[in-house]
Amino acid sequence: MKRSKHGKIYRQSLSNRLVHWGAAFSIFSLIISGFGQMPMYKRYNIVKLPGAEWLGDYSITLLMHYVGAVILIFIVFYHMFVHLFQKEYDAIPKRGDVKESWKIIKAIITKGEEPPSEKYLAEQRLAYLAIGVTVLILVITGIIKVIKNISIAFIPHSIVTISTTLHNFATFFLIFLIIAHLAAFLIKANRKLLPGMITGYVDEEYVKHRHIKWYKKLVDKKNRS
């Protein structure tokens, strides 16, 4: 599986890339259509923009929300189980990650030396946890909201109210996290990761400098085989 290219390192498998972009795409469509469920687009005159009329139609935005949700749920379960089956836990936070992420941020600001990192930086692992938990909350509360709309199902109103409130707040938190995720690429050092999510490969030089522990493991593995 270890395809090699000169001066490049294979970082993100096709499976990972599909999960990432599938989730990004479906979450984007969920946010657009989710806001349509708050009667927002009419109120703020967005429906008057050319080509935006459909945003004011609940039956269209709700259908879009359902389609987005089905795709996202599929991806979330695929993602959780494929890593479970393959015992890959690189992105799960480790003890001391909070402290370590501060060190990395300090190093970036002072242009100092970063502590040696694994495949993912400490802040990447923390961001993964935050986004993962938020998306899970959205999925679970979203599923409860779907069930309550089926005429044969009965869910106590108190649970529906709690789910709705969590769903709404988690949405805003997720938007905040997405903005933070994108803002991370304002930092030059992080931009080297972008090709990895597109082609799968990152520069070997970059890995050598920044993900020293991971690089050592890769070299060890190569020497062994």
Partner: peptide
């Protein structure tokens, strides 16, 4: 009209796990 979509939403986790098993 959305009841059917709800069913797809219920099948999605199972399909996701199956796809994960297949990929692994």
């Amino acid at each position: 009209s959305f009841s059917g979509m709800a069913l797809s939403a219920a099948i999605a986790p199972i399909a996701g796990i199956a796809a994960a098993g297949f990929a692994a």
